[in-house]
Design a binder for these strands. Structure first.
Lengths: 217, 217
DNA sequence: TTGACAAATGAACAAATGTTCATTATAATG
DNA sequence: CATTATAATGAACATTTGTTCATTTGTCAA
């Protein structure tokens, strides 16, 4: 009976709860958490502010829920659909795939909003910093490191510091992603930045790949 | 040259105005503009909030003044002490110098606060976005582009797209700078990130430099 | 000293904001 | 149907916040 009732209440109640989260994310990501009022959120859904408190203890809990969602969002699970033990065998095209995944994040509204929320609260919210650092930065750099280590063993790329390579590969992607978000805010063209994702992979690969023997031909 | 004479010539008022800007920057950069109250600012100086309005029309004007200061701050004039027409002759050590300048920004409290302010308001304040884009990003990337173009002509580095190189050189520096700021917020060690500044230059240079002839010896 | 002027104070205000709560509406369940 | 749990409403609240203003304080020049 407990499960049943929980399921039922979830299915009907969660509709507004989801709406709240969705609209709150939109507002937080564009105005910032502090500047967004509970009346803003309620108003954007079409309910009164007091109704929010049937679903969340307070305004902070809405943010906390969104932050928690971050840990399972696509911007944090860039590599989860790939098998690490085989990753290192594909070489450059693998890197291109990662860069493309990264790039595509900005074209999904939900992910873009999460990214903007992340960026805006990063300097004020320690919990967000934890998530950013642990799930977004460390996790991805660690996976990249493993990939590069594998590539080195297979002699696909030159032997060097895998952690450095991971950072060098990751940081431009992050930066270009940020640039795209910023340009979109002002409705400017993003094409020149978007093209940098691929060019970055090319440039990076040229540096790390094992040189073919010059005397082969 | 002592306090007294300064006090006497410049009226006491301008000193308070500077204090306001200094403390406001500190507070804005740590709590964000919206979350900082005029009482916070006044309190941190030791005056009453109403006294602020003898120096600034309102809270927004304080932020605007700080934003304006950004355009002439060190985080925006990274290259201003160098002569562009000669820059391209130094090669790798020039790049190392730029990276070091970048790195050192985070060790000056004023610059670090400006950087944090910039990052926090970037997604909400169009004027800051303009300044960031024009003075911080475009300006520096343009100068870097010119440097790389020169290096290519001198055949110090391989011929390729100077603008891409500029972005590839700039973006990790930016990212590492951000990482340092974030780590400092939580009083964590920054040494591993700080070392990435130099390693980045090494890695970058290996990719772009003109290969020496292998058969020389 | 006196007069003038900038700066600081204390008190107050209106608006905005997060939150509570008693009441009403809604919908599923026995 | 009646019951019961959940959701939404309207009204209210205590605070917080930006700002104003009349008054006082301090400083320098005449």
């Amino acid at each position: 009976m407990d499960e049943q009732s929980v399921n039922n209440t979830l299915s009907k109640g969660s509709k507004t709860k989801e709406k709240i989260l969705k609209h709150a994310l939109k507002l937080f990501s564009s105005k910032g958490f502090k500047a967004t009022t509970v009346r803003d959120i309620a108003g954007s859904i079409g309910i009164k502010q007091s109704a929010l408190y049937n679903h969340f203890k307070n305004k902070d809990e809405i943010l906390e829920t969104l932050i928690q969602d971050l840990t399972t969002s696509a911007i944090v699970t860039l590599f989860d659909n790939k098998d690490p033990s085989e990753l290192h065998k594909e070489g450059k095209s693998l890197l291109m795939g990662i860069a493309t995944t990264f790039k595509l994040l900005s074209f999904d509204g939900q992910n873009e909003a999460l990214f903007k929320l992340l960026m805006q609260e990063l300097f004020r919210n320690e919990r967000i910093r934890e998530i950013y650092n642990e799930y977004f930065y460390q996790e991805n750099v660690k996976k990249l490191s493993g990939i590069f280590f594998g590539m080195m063993q297979e002699e696909v790329i030159k032997s060097s510091d895998p952690l450095l390579l991971a950072n060098e590969f990751f940081s431009p992607l992050f930066f270009y992603q940020m640039q795209v978000s910023l340009l979109k805010l002002d409705k400017k063209s993003t094409s020149s930045v978007v093209s940098l994702f691929e060019k970055h992979v090319e440039h990076f690969w040229d540096n790390v790949k094992v040189e073919k023997q010059a005397s082969l031909f």
